[in-house]
Amino acid sequence: MLASYQGQLWARISARKPRGLNLSGVAMVRFAVGRAGELISVELAASSGNAALDRLALRTVRNAGPFPPPPATVEGDQLVFTIPFSFH
């Protein structure tokens, strides 16, 4: 159930990812989603080494919210995810 929800979030974030960049790198982004699907926090867990790509990764996650609410079977007030955000 949680894996399916993660897939929904990643698809939503990926759909907002800018295309056609001539830069490459991987930024690790950590974000928290609340019970109603609201984006509680977003931060850089590991830098790509390029400040512009890091900012773009954070902005893309922010722009993807609000998210669908998590499944009712998931416990806790928020879910925290860390995803690799790749640019090639």
Rank of each mutant, 00 (worst) to 15 (best):
K17L: 01
N63H: 09
Q8Y: 06
A36V: 13
G37Q: 03
E75K: 15
A11R: 11
A51Q: 14
A36R: 13
T82I: 14
V74W: 11
S41W: 01
P69C: 04
F67K: 01
N63K: 03
A52F: 11
A15N: 09
A72E: 15
H88K: 14
L56E: 09
V29G: 03
A27Y: 05
G7P: 10
F67Q: 02
P84V: 02
L39D: 00
L2S: 08
L53W: 05
P66K: 07
L44Q: 11
L44E: 10
R16W: 07
S4W: 15
P69Q: 02
G37T: 02
I83K: 02
D54H: 02
V26M: 03
Q6E: 15
T82E: 15
A72S: 13
S41F: 04
W10G: 00
L79S: 08
P70M: 05
A57C: 04
L53C: 06
H88Y: 13
L23T: 15
N63T: 09
A32Y: 03
T82V: 14
G20A: 01
S41I: 05
Y5N: 06
Y5D: 03
G34H: 05
G20Q: 07
N50A: 00
R16Q: 10
P70D: 06
A46Y: 10
P71Y: 05
L44H: 06
H88Q: 11
P69A: 07
L44C: 10
V33K: 04
R30H: 04
S24A: 12
T73V: 13
R55F: 00
G49E: 08
A45I: 08
G76Q: 07
Q78W: 14
V29M: 02
V80S: 13
V26H: 08
N63C: 00
G34S: 15
S86H: 12
A72M: 10
L39P: 05
L79Q: 11
R16V: 05
R19E: 15
I40C: 10
I83T: 14
I40D: 00
W10I: 12
L9R: 04
P84R: 06
A32S: 15
N63S: 10
G49A: 04
F87V: 00
Y5V: 02
G20D: 08
M1E: 12
Q6T: 13
S48C: 09
L53K: 05
V26T: 11
I40A: 03
F31C: 06
E38H: 04
L79E: 06
S14K: 15
F31L: 07
P71G: 10
R59I: 14
P69I: 01
L44S: 04
L9N: 06
L53F: 02
A51F: 00
G65F: 08
R12L: 13
H88I: 11
A27T: 12
S24Y: 11
A32T: 09
P66R: 08
R19V: 14
Q78M: 10
G34T: 12
L21W: 09
L44T: 09
V74M: 13
G7H: 03
T73L: 13
A46C: 00
N63F: 08
P84M: 01
N50T: 12
W10P: 00
G49D: 05
S41G: 07
